[in-house]
Write a protein that binds this DNA or RNA. Sequence first.
DNA 1: GGCGGAACGT
DNA 2: ACGTTCCGCC
Length: 632
Amino acid sequence: MKTPADTGFAFPEWAYKPESSPGSRQIQLWHFILELLRKEEYHDVIAWQGDYGEFVIKDPDEVARLWGARKCKPQMNYDKLSRALRYYYNKRILHKTKGKRFTYKFNFNKLVLVNYPFIDMGSGRGVPQSAPPVPSGGTHFRFPPSTPSEVLSSTEELRSPGMFSSVGRRMARGSVSDCSDGTSTNSELEEAVGAEDRVGGPERAFRSLLPPRMPHESLFRVYGGAPNPGLPRPAPRVHPEPLSPFPISPLPGSGGLLAPTLSPALSMTPTPHLSYTPSPSMSSPMLGSHFSFNPEDMKHYLQAHTQSVYNYHLSPRAFLHYPNIVIPQPHRPTPEKPAAAHHLHGPPMPLSHSLSQQPGGGEEGHQHPSPFKFKLQPPPLGRKQREAGSSMAASSSSSSSQSSFTGSSQMTNSLLSRGPPNIKVEPISDIESEEDVEVTDISEEDEKNHNDENNEGSIFTPTAGHNNHHQLNNHHQANGNSSSPSAPLPQNNNPDDDPDDEVFKTPATPPIGGGGGLAFPLISLKSEPGSQAAPISPGGTRCIPLKLRFKRRWSKDQKMEADGERDEAEDKKVRAEGEEEAERRGSEVENGGGRGEGVILGLMLPPPPTQRRASSELQRATAQLSLENSGC
DNA sequence: GGCGGAACGT
DNA sequence: ACGTTCCGCC
C-alpha cells in the first residue's frame, strides 16, 4: 500500500499508521497525552507519576480543553476524554491505575517504543514527574524525514536537510491553524511545535540521542554501555525549554554521544524484546542465541530507534544502553555470533560511520531500511463482538490481528558499529526469554501480575519457552563452541527467533533489496563475509552468509507469526472471558511474558514480505509526530 | 470517578 | 479505526 516497496517497516496499525501515528494528521489521544507529558509547561495539568509510564491528570478540565482544542472539539470535557482513554484499555495502550484518581498508565511495553523510543515516562519510580523527555544532551531531536518512505527509499534523505524541510513546513502550518470553531486554544502546544520545526541536521539528531538516564538499568539485563553502567546521569536531562523543546541545538558534534547510545527505545519498553533483543531481530541472521545480535543488525535497529527518537524527541530513557553492548556469556564462551563478534571487536563497520562517527564524519551512512516486523499489541476485541456473542457467541469472530508490523531498522548500523561495541549482557540465566529478561521490568514492578495478561503475550509466545531453552543452548554452543557447526544459529534458531521473532524479526529486506533502496542488510552482508571473517571459525559454520541466515530466519518468523496470530485469537477469547485485571497488568506483564507481544518496537520481524510496510511509514510516523500539534 | 455500551461522525 | 457524544450503572 502506501509505499510499499520502500518501506521496510511495518508497524502496528495503531502505532504507526499514518493516521494513528503521532504525527499523523489526526492526532491520537495517546500521542497527545504523551506530548503534553513531555512538555514542562503542562506539568501542572498532566505529569508522569510514580511508576513507569504512569501519569496523572492533575487538571482534567484543562487536559480536556487542550485536547478539545487540538481536535477542534470545543465541547470536549474530561468525561469524553476519559471515554476515549478507556478505549485504550482494550487496545492495551493504557490502563487505569486503580485507586488513583485521574491516573493512568501507559503500557509501553508494547507500544510505543517504536514510536517513541525515548519517552520517558516517569522515570520509574524514582523520578516522579519529571520525566523529561529530552534526551540527554540536550540535543534535541528532530523530526525525521518527512516521510518514512522517503527515508527509506533514499538513504540520503535522512541526512539531508531537505527532508526535514518539508516536514517543517507542515509543522509550521499546523501550528498555526486554529479550529474553525473558534476555540483556538491550542496555541500553546502549537507553539512548542513550531519551535520544533526547526530542523537541524538529521545527523546531529542522531548523535544526540543519548542515553539519558537509565533508571532501571539494573533491570535490564543487558545494557550497553559498558561504559556506563549506571550512568550517573550527569546532566542528562536537559529539559528543553518549555516552548521549544527542540531547539535547534546542534549537538555537540563530537561528542556527543556516546555514540553508542543506541536506541533507548528498547530499554524503555518493558518489553524486552526490543530492548534488548536487538539482536534477535537482527540477529536472526546471526546468532541465535540469546543475545545474539549482530552488530550490524543492532546498528540497524538502533538507528531506527534513534530515528524515532528524534522524531519524537522523546526521551532518552530508552536508550540506555546500547552503546556497547557486551554480552557476557557466562556459560558459553562463544559469543553470539560470529559475525557479530568480530564486528564488535573489530573493525567498525562501514555503516557505522554515521552515528558513531563524529559529526564531521561524514555522511552517515546510509541507513538502509530494513524491515522489521513487530508485533505490538494484540488487537483489542471489540466488545461489540462480545455482544454479538450473545447471539453469536463471542467466540472468535473477527480476527483482527494487527499486531504485527514490521519495522526496519535502518539506522542501527551506525550505532553499533562504533568502535568496539561491547555489549554487556547480564547473565542470563533464564534463558528463555531473553526478551523477557531484558526488559522486564521496568515499569512493572508494581504490578505483579504476571499473569496473564498478557494476553498479548499470548499472542506471540507460543511455545517459546521450551524451545527457547533448547535453542538457547544451541545458540550458545553455536556461538561459542561452534561445535555445532551446522546449525549455528540460524537454522534452529528458532530459538532466538522465537522469542525474538516475536519480538522483532528482521527480514532480510528482500523487498527492498532489489535495488533501489538500500537494504542495509545487504550491506551488512557484504561486509561481513568479506574480509573480516568471522572469528569463529574454521569450522566455518558461521560463515553462512547472512543472507541465508536471514532467509531462514525469515521463514521461521513467518511461521512464528502465524502462531502468534493464533495466540491472539486465544487471547481475545480469554479476554472475553474476562480478564480485566490481567489486562491491566498486561502491560506489565511483559516481564514475564515477555516475549509476547511486545515486541515492541520494532523489532519483530516481518512477516511476510508482503506485509511489511515500509520503513517509510515509520519515518513518516515519526515525522508526523511532530506535526500532530498542528491539528485542526 | 470510573466503566462501558451504543449511536454517530470522520 | 478512532474517537465523540450520550447515557446508565457501579
